[in-house]
Design a protein around this nucleic acid. Structure first.
Lengths: 242, 242
DNA sequence: TCAATTTACTTGTCTAAACAAGTGTGCTAT
DNA sequence: ATAGCACACTTGTTTAGACAAGTAAATTGA
């Protein structure tokens, strides 16, 4: 929490104050000059903090006017960015469970080997069923490179892979590429998800996850019940000028 | 194109060079010091340009090493951010058409009035069917506030709304919130999308779009054929530290 | 030979300062 | 009264410099 990095601390502090309605939606934040005095820092540092808030969709800066606090109420379900099931579960108040269906050694699917040019395709394969309020929501299949994570204890699979990666192994997860499609799934998958016979479609989210040093280390296929799937995104318009 | 803003020009130049393989995937960009000399500018400006590339998923910066060019080949279909059908159509090479099904005046749906607190709910309603290679792909329904855009010529609806907003009306589109869900749709919608009787599910993307001064001005509901829908995203991991 | 240290180079953070440009208020001259 | 202007305040861009901290290769010492 004490990041020792000023601009992140300031960004966190401003974020907290916005969430606690100390800076209400629709009002202006103090000007950069005022914030500079308030936090006893330089304007460049304040601006770096405000850039964070802008990227997170918390404020909109207007030249000549100031920083408007945006309505963040609709954003209580932020699945954009890389957020995990456990983190989602903790931020919301829900009765969620994770059941490990499979935990085994195996190899990365061939198309992913081709895509990532990985040398050593040995992986730990984890298949898990996630439920919320006793209702099946999603089946996650993770392929985790053994060259990066040699083994995964069963207890870890039952809880949070990411916490194990980041807190125990000190891996620095940096970025991921995701695709979302809708596809028919196998009968067994329909059973897991509790899908009726009339409809065998699931929402499939495929992720390739990379570490800070750009090494690929995890491939995930998540199959969601279509009637329980919701993806929320905040997007800024980049000026697509010629 | 000549933005007169240095860091954006540099970012565009570096982006072009990466796309043309002048800086190949997996190699390092010149160091910030070298780029400073190359472009005859300050390091802060170079760093602002590199931040753009980082946000766009083109490079990964590694402290002490440099900026690694990422494999952008898989990203030829970037629907993340706010990108429109027309822009997509032009960047890819496809035979796409737009057919205007409805162009009328109306009112914003009540739930959106509540969500946005808009005072004047009068809108122009545009319903359009998009096809690619003679195949129906998506039906877009746009509700555009008359208080911001008084009227929309039919010819504009046939081509690009955004080009009209940005280039003709000089509106500055800033950000949008999106949700993606999967929902059953009406029989008529099934007809438009060419969906068989066995399956009446469509991928529904709802967007609330805002201008630079935070005024809400457009609500869009897009219903996609599930078997033709693909959403691609690049996401960075924010450190969810305590 | 090999481990430890130094050194050079890299990115990350922070500061202070200047000017450009957009917004809004209020005064002034007509 | 009102149109126009000046002024104060806002964010946006750019510069130059300093130090911290991570990486990797070269050097040194045992």
């Amino acid at each position: 929490m004490d990041t020792t990095v000023k601009y992140l601390n300031i960004a966190q502090d401003l974020t907290d104050k916005i969430k606690h309605d100390l800076y209400p939606t629709g009002t202006l934040l103090p000007s950069e000059a005022d914030l500079t005095k308030l936090y006893g820092t330089s304007r460049a540092t304040i601006r770096k903090a405000l850039t964070e808030l802008t990227n997170n969709g918390l404020i909109q800066k207007i030249k000549g006017k100031g920083s408007v606090v945006l309505n963040t109420a609709r954003f209580t379900f932020p699945i954009s960015g890389i957020t995990t099931f456990s983190e989602l579960n903790e931020s919301q108040q829900m009765h969620a469970t994770t059941k490990v269906l499979t935990l085994a050694e195996g190899s990365l699917p061939q198309d992913i080997i081709d895509q990532t040019q990985v040398k050593d395709p040995r992986v730990t394969f984890v298949q898990r069923l996630r439920t919320i309020n006793e209702e099946p929501i999603v089946v996650d299949e993770d392929y985790i490179l053994k060259s990066v994570v040699p083994n995964i204890p069963e207890k870890v699979a039952e809880h949070s892979l990411y916490r194990y990666f980041e807190e125990t192994l000190d891996l620095e997860i940096a970025y991921a590429t995701k695709t979302i499609t809708v596809e028919p799934v196998s009968d067994k998958m329909c059973q897991f998800l509790g899908l009726g016979a009339t409809n065998n479609l699931a929402v499939v989210v495929r992720s390739l996850t990379y570490l800070n040093d750009t090494t690929f280390f995890q491939y995930t296929v998540s199959r969601h019940r279509p009637d329980r799937f919701k993806f929320v995104d905040f997007a800024r318009r980049h000026h697509h000028g010629q």
